[in-house]
């Protein structure tokens, strides 16, 4: 019995169909690998530059080197830090500076961000430029400007002297020196994050609140603040993370003792040549910072869920 030959056209179409399926699958796989490759670079950098140093620092801070060079597991570094008055004073002044800066940033930047969000005139554009300006000024230049203006015999002193008034008690080399510098330095980022958060509050929602009888304070408290809680948390987390581990401004503007953790770590490492203790201080600093880091991660995760 003679078999009917298969129609050629059908064969071709089948082959084309199979080829198309293979090609689509190949493209998808290619895209998947390209995506993984793009993600891999930052993940690798974070793992190398952040995760690895942390993972190695924790065991090194728990290592005690004996006089004979032998190493043993010990909490001695931590015991020393938490029993040493000077170390605790440094931690306290770091926490104090961070909290004061965070509070001041909120008090200064929230009204500024509200003004920038709800005003659109030339003055607002000028204020925005002024608020963002510190972002482009390096910390060392800022420190120098601070000393020239608020330091002993600075511009303010000269002006006061010119009108026959007594000198100010300069915040330079007091705990308020780093506070002023760090607040000024962190205003741009905080304002940008808050303005971005306020962008999600539409004019219509504000108008709807006014329509039902809400005045300014009620609108701020009941409508605006609940909508930008996440942005406030993110801004404060960013500020706190930067301030807690800051170095230049506390080093140049702050007192010699007590000092913030940044200069303290540097001095322990360099001047006292005690790397294990400096690593212990770093781990403790990291432990405080991670709390605020978790706040930030929680806020981001919350924003991504409807």
């Amino acid at each position: 019995m003679r078999r009917e030959p298969r129609p050629k056209r059908s064969q071709y179409s089948m082959t084309e169909h199979t080829a198309a399926t293979v090609s689509v699958a190949g493209t998808r796989r290619g895209r998947k690998y390209a995506g993984l490759f793009l993600v891999a670079i930052p993940v690798f950098l974070v793992a190398w530059m952040v995760i690895w140093p942390i993972l190695t620092a924790i065991p090194r801070s728990l290592m005690q080197v004996g006089t004979d060079g032998s190493t043993s597991f010990s909490f001695a570094n931590y015991q020393f830090f938490f029993s040493d008055r000077y170390s605790l004073n440094n931690l306290t002044v770091t926490l104090w500076t961070t909290m004061v800066c965070a509070a001041l940033l909120l008090v200064i930047c929230l009204p500024l961000a509200l003004y920038l969000r709800f005003t659109s005139n030339r003055i607002a554009a000028f204020v925005q430029s002024l608020a963002i300006f510190p972002m482009f000024v390096p910390s060392i230049i800022l420190s120098y400007a601070f000393i020239r203006v608020l330091g002993p015999n600075g511009t303010v002193d000269l002006l006061l002297n010119g009108v026959g008034l007594p000198r100010i008690r300069s915040p330079y080399l007091t705990p308020w020196g780093p506070v002023i510098g760090l607040v000024w330095d962190n205003i741009p980022l905080t304002v940008l994050i808050l303005v971005s958060g306020l962008g999600a509050v539409s004019n219509a929602t504000i108008e709807a609140a006014r329509d039902v009888g809400a005045r300014r304070l009620a609108i701020l408290w009941h409508i605006i603040l609940p909508r930008i809680t996440n942005s406030i948390l993110v801004a404060i987390s960013f500020g706190v993370l930067g301030i807690f581990s800051s170095f230049t401004l506390p080093y140049v503007l702050g007192p010699a003792a007590p000092e913030m953790m940044g200069p303290f770590m540097q001095r322990t490492f360099r001047d006292l040549q005690n790397p294990p203790m400096a690593i212990t201080q770093a781990v403790i600093t990291f432990a405080f910072c991670i709390v605020f880091g978790l706040f930030y991660i929680r806020s981001v995760a919350k924003n991504r869920t409807p």
Binding site: A209, V212, I223
Partner: peptide, 15 residues
């Protein structure tokens, strides 16, 4: 806030 009017907005404007 002092008018005896109530407005419904195009975008709903719900909180």
């Amino acid at each position: 806030e002092r008018r005896p009017t109530g407005m419904v907005f195009q975008s709903h404007a719900l909180w």
